[in-house]
Amino acid sequence: MRQDRIGFIGLGNMGARMTRRLVDAGIAVLGLDRDPARPAAAGAQTAGSIKEVVDFADLVMLSLPDSHAVESVVEGQDGILAHARAGQTVVDLSTAAASSTIRLHGLLAARGVRYIDAGISGGAAAAEKGTLTLMIGGEPEAIEAVRWAFAPISSKALNMGASGAGHTTKLLNNFLNAVSLAATAEVMVAGKKAGLDLHQLLDVLNSSSGVNFATLNRFPSIVDGNYLEGGLTSKLMTKDVVLYIERARELGVASLNGSGPLASFGLATALGYGEMISNKVVDAIGDVSGGIRLHQPQGDRA
């Protein structure tokens, strides 16, 4: 496998940042996106079709919104399956349904193409720094053969098992992320209404049993009006929770805690925050709790 070039499909919020890391590592990247300006903005060459991407490199990476988009790119009339050649590898960095991933793995394997699912975590900041965590599923030898491509974008790349294991792990992680973010948002609105100093409240939480990723890494900025733009939107968070619940159903696991984050991020979407970063869920909860905002705009301060 040539280790100096990669085809990359989907250069959105995360894909563009990963592409930039690959390019800066000296790898030639041919990118394809619905927005034809995105590949060049990320430092990549611009492809005009999936066929061009597949013809360009032995390794093709995908970073797409959901399984429907992945299936369209792989199985579409002019998709990867139509043009792939034996010996190629496709790495899916999307957040996708494990059942779809496993099915696509089988279709591509029949053509002699390796398909690896690699869920990512860390958000936009980690993507820019190349410190993402990768949760990988697929054959061990296939994964080892592409670790050179993971190195510029991640600080941790863990083989979680067979096909679908990476995307399953990603859904488990994202569900906990959704629960902690939604629950902490509710707690912070309650703290604001109670007249508590929010930085002191966070200090208590972060040294007590309520500590979580949101209290440690999100709300110290949010309470000062910095929503840490660039991460997962409320619509995408809702999609991930739904995927988790469906995966739990497939595994025969009772999902008793799915309703909370579904309601919270569904509320955010209904109130117009759907395309905004999911941290805005705190404003949605604040809206229905009396118009509460955690931070006070500069002009409103005494």
Rank of each mutant, 00 (worst) to 15 (best):
G195F: 13
E250Q: 06
G274Q: 12
G43E: 09
L262W: 11
T238K: 11
L216I: 01
L205E: 01
S259T: 10
F150M: 10
A98F: 08
S259Q: 03
G106Q: 15
T89I: 14
L22F: 12
E250S: 00
S63L: 08
K156S: 09
S221N: 14
V54T: 11
T269Y: 14
G291T: 11
H167T: 07
I143T: 06
I80T: 02
R17P: 08
L93Q: 05
V53H: 06
S208E: 06
L236Q: 12
R249G: 00
L104E: 00
V70Q: 11
G137H: 05
R247V: 10
A268G: 02
D24S: 08
R218P: 04
A178E: 02
T19P: 13
D24G: 00
G195V: 06
G191R: 12
V54Y: 08
S94T: 08
G31F: 07
R218N: 12
F150T: 02
G137Q: 04
V54E: 01
F213E: 09
I9T: 09
P297C: 09
A254P: 13
A270E: 11
L294H: 14
L30V: 06
L158Y: 05
G225V: 13
R293H: 10
N206Q: 04
R301V: 07
G76F: 06
L228K: 07
V113G: 03
Q296A: 01
K170Q: 10
L271H: 00
T215F: 12
L243V: 01
G291K: 12
P65S: 13
L271P: 01
N217P: 01
R5C: 08
G15R: 13
L64G: 05
L216G: 00
G231Y: 09
